[in-house]
Design a protein around this nucleic acid. Structure first.
Length: 274
DNA sequence: CCCCTATCCTGAGGGC
DNA sequence: TGCCCTCAGGATAGGG
C-alpha cells in the first residue's frame, strides 16, 4: 500500500511533468471516488487550469491548480497516479483522466476504490472533513517535534497504534511502522507511555531513516504500488520484517513472528524487540 | 479516551 | 483447469 515513501516517489516523479502544464480536458471522472464539496464544480472548474504546484502532505497528493483550489488525491490501498500518453489504452478501474497540454494524461486508477479524490481550497476541504488535520511530517528537519514525543509519553495505546495515527505522525502506515520498530528494537505491542526516553528517541530516529531508505529505492511494491510512470519500487527486498513472518531475523537469525496489533498484521522479532 | 469490529472493494493465492 | 474461500488493509463510523 502506498505510504509516505511511495507517495513521495510519485510526487517527485510527477512534479516536473505537471508544473506549468495546463489541463485541457477532464476525459473521464468516476463520481464515486470524488468527495464533496468539490464534486459538483470539478468538471467545469478544472479545464483551463494550470498546475502551479505538486506536493505531498502525509499520504495525500496535492496538485495545486491556481489559488485557492487544489486537487487532492489519497491512493488508499491500491491507488496509482500515473502519467501516460493519451493514446495509450486506459486500464480498467481508471477513475480519473486529465488530459494535459503536453499530450500526456494524468490517470488515477484504483481497483479497490479505497482511495479518494477531492477538489477545492484547502481550508474548505478541512472544514467539511474531506481533508483531515494531519500530524508531524517524518521528513521535516524538526522531526520529531515535542508534540510527537508528548503523544507517545502520554498514550496508553500500543506503540504501533500511535505510529499509525495520522493525527500524530502523518504518512506512516503498516510497513514502515513495523520497520521503524525493528530498527529501534522496540516491540510494537508495548504501551507507548512505558517506553524509556532512550527507546522513544531510538524509535523516532528510526522512522525517518527507514522512510528515506525506501524513497531511495523508489518505494515498496509488493502488490499494487507503482511510481508516477507505472514502474515498481525496489524497497520490498530490503525490508527487515514486513512480509517476512516465518523467515529469519536479519539481525539475530531467530524466526520472525506475526501478530495482530492495533487491528493490523504486525511482524517483529521476539528476541531483538523486547 | 481506548479498543475492537464492520464497512468499503478487488485480486491474489491456496486448497481441492 | 477452474472454482470457491480467505485474506490483505487505510480510513472511518459505531458499539462496548
Amino acid at each position: 500500500m502506498p505510504e509516505l515513501p511511495e507517495v513521495e516517489t510519485i510526487v517527485r516523479d510527477l512534479r516536473p511533468h505537471l508544473l506549468g502544464r495546463q489541463i485541457r480536458q477532464v476525459v473521464h471522472i468516476n463520481p464515486q471516488i470524488l468527495r464533496h464539496p468539490g464534486a459538483a464544480q470539478f468538471g467545469e472548474a478544472v479545464p483551463g487550469r494550470t498546475v502551479d504546484g505538486v506536493l505531498r502532505r502525509g499520504k495525500f497528493i496535492h496538485v495545486m491548480l491556481g489559488r485557492p483550489e487544489r486537487l487532492v488525491v489519497h491512493l488508499g490501498m491500491s491507488g496509482t497516479l500515473i502519467l501516460q500518453p493519451s493514446e495509450d489504452l486506459a486500464r480498467p478501474h481508471t477513475h480519473l483522466r486529465l488530459l494535459l497540454d503536453s499530450g500526456l494524461e494524468l490517470r488515477y486508477r484504483d481497483p479497490r476504490r479505497f482511495g479518494r479524490v477531492t477538489f477545492g481550497p484547502e481550508e474548505q476541504l478541512i472544514a467539511v472533513g474531506s481533508l483531515p488535520v494531519l500530524g508531524a511530517e517524518p521528513l521535516a528537519r524538526a522531526f520529531p517535534p515535542c508534540s510527537v514525543e508528548a503523544a507517545l509519553e502520554r498514550s496508553g495505546r500500543s506503540v504501533k497504534a500511535v505510529l499509525l495515527d495520522q493525527r500524530v505522525i502523518a504518512g506512516c502506515g503498516n510497513i514502515y511502522a513495523d520497520e521503524a520498530c525493528f530498527l529501534a528494537r522496540v516491540r510494537p505491542t508495548r504501551r507507548a507511555s512505558q517506553l524509556t526516553k532512550v527507546e522513544r528517541d531510538r524509535l523516532l530516529r528510526a522512522l525517518p531513516i527507514v522512510m528515506r531508505d525506501a524513497i531511495r529505492r523508489r518505494g515498496t511494491s509488493f502488490s499494487d504500488y507503482r511510481d508516477g510512470f507505472g514502474a515498481k519500487g525496489e524497497a520490498f527486498e530490503s525490508l527487515f520484517v514486513y512480509g517476512r513472518s516465518g523467515y529469519a531475523c536479519v539481525r539475530c537469525g531467530s524466526t520472525l513472528r506475526r501478530a495482530r496489533v492495533a487491528g493490523r498484521t504486525t511482524v517483529y522479532c521476539m528476541r531483538c524487540q523486547s
